[in-house]
Design a protein around this nucleic acid. Structure first.
Lengths: 127, 127
DNA sequence: TTACGCTTTAGAGCGCGCTCTAACGCAAGC
DNA sequence: GCTTGCGTTAGAGCGCGCTCTAAAGCGTAA
């Protein structure tokens, strides 16, 4: 389980581009990536798991700045576990709120679709 | 029920800025807004309802270009009802997909929080 | 030995959805 | 008649999150 991956491999495994992977490293979302003797990045399974978690945060709408905070806490080690937990709990609440909002609006859109269906049948009966 | 509203009133009723309202009109999301004798916009209840629907579409992640398509169809009248319905149905499916994705990821985040809680108690027992 | 394919970096550019600025108009109140 | 406050326009600027470019290095294959 001590696999090492090139940037290209990580790109195809995660769906991020190599550009984005380097960019995330530059802004501090990904840290301490090893290099081989020619200076190429070597990602570990550990890095990969972290990147996949970052993607979850992104997909659920966490802003980069907050991801950065989380990443910084993570680097500081075990003393920041509570802080990290709190940050995630806050985000979790945001996500639940977002789901609720989407559900409400999805419902309204459904109603509009039903309304159009009614109009459609009315049209047909007229012609 | 033939209320007329100034741009400022519509802004405070919808939460959009006056800038955004003019911008939406410029790019064709809002059409045919009446003007008074001095050239000021006068929004009707009908306009207001449309703006609120636009906001739903936006909140649920519909891109502007698609909102524009929808707005264009709407302007063409009753013959586009089926097309509008289809567009909304497609968007509705997208929204349900997004909700599912959020739920999946929310669950993973929940697991991570639980994991941190475990680590926390472990820490306390050591010290 | 030269071409190919992968990598590196710094830094520029881009697309979306606003957001703001500048310059101006009108109309009511002091 | 001048200020205040609302509105108008065209067009520039901005912040986020990438996305791409240019110039260069290294290693294998023909």
């Amino acid at each position: 389980m001590k696999n090492l991956f090139s940037i290209q491999q990580v790109a195809s495994m995660t769906g991020l581009s190599t550009h984005t992977l380097r960019y995330y490293e530059k802004i501090g979302l990904i840290k301490n990536v090893q290099r081989d003797q020619t200076g190429y990045r070597q990602y570990t399974d550990f890095d990969l798991a972290w990147i996949q978690f970052l993607i979850r945060l992104r997909v659920t709408g966490m802003p980069m700045l907050k991801m950065k905070q989380f990443s910084d806490l993570r680097q500081k080690g075990d003393s920041t576990i509570t802080a990290r937990k709190e940050l995630l709990k806050e985000h979790y609440k945001d996500v639940l709120g977002k789901i609720e909002e989407l559900e409400l609006n999805a419902h309204r859109i459904e109603e509009k679709i039903a309304h159009y269906k009614k109009l459609e049948t009315a049209e047909k009966q007229h012609s």
